[in-house]
Amino acid sequence: MNALTMPIADGWTIARRNTRKIRRSPDLLGSAIMFPIVFVLMFAYVFGSVIDVPGMSYREFLLPGIFVQAVLVSAQVTGYTLTLDLQKGIFDRFRSLPMAPSGVLIGQTVSDLLMNLASLVVMAVMGLIVGWRVHTAPHEAVLGFGLLLLFAYAFSWFTATVALALRTPESFNNIATTLSFPLMFVSNAFLDSSDLPAPLRVVAEWNPVSTITQAARELFGNTSAAMKTADAWPLQHAVPASLLWIAVILVVFIPLATRLYKKAVSA
């Protein structure tokens, strides 16, 4: 095996291990999938009956936001399992083996991606049940899901960075919750961000969650002419802005996570 195939082969071995692990932890799998399902139902039926979006049904508006939210939720699960691994001797085992050191994080992020794919399928089916529809051409819809998965993959490098910096499951859970709630709610995921007061509105408009959500809405056709898109550049050019966000996250957090991994395991 050469320097190029080894990280891939080893990463795949680790990814298989992680997916098996998650499959066998019903509590983790449950929270990753159940949480967004509960959100779909709650927002669709409780908030949806109060919130009015001009020109379209709230559920159609909501679902792309829920897709992005599901990515944030499942990231919490995988970050948590990473900190659990750090507490045990398993990384010592890996590091004493002639495997590619990068294989561990590649495996971690690839298994995250598989889990996100599974949860996205569940969310999409759930959405179709409550009345969400794709109004664009099939290839655009595929691009929509592709963009969501790309974002999910990039985001899991961010999660891994946070997990490796904090190292304990308890502190990770605390920080993940305090970080993800503002990310999720100070955005356009659940409501029209242009209704927010000025400072919050600016934050929401530049929040990457809003950018990805807006891009997904455009690619699935869950937008309406009656609803004005905010003037902020990332929302006006949601798809390229999303790709830019994804690229920036990858460029910053792949090296950072790699460095923190080395530091965390060699202590």
């Binding site: 291990r17 098996r20 692990k21 932890s25 001797g89 398993i90």
Partner: peptide, 10 residues
């Protein structure tokens, strides 16, 4: 190792 470095879920 000192503590068994095996994966509990596997």
């Amino acid at each position: 190792g000192q503590y068994a470095a095996v994966d509990e879920h596997l």
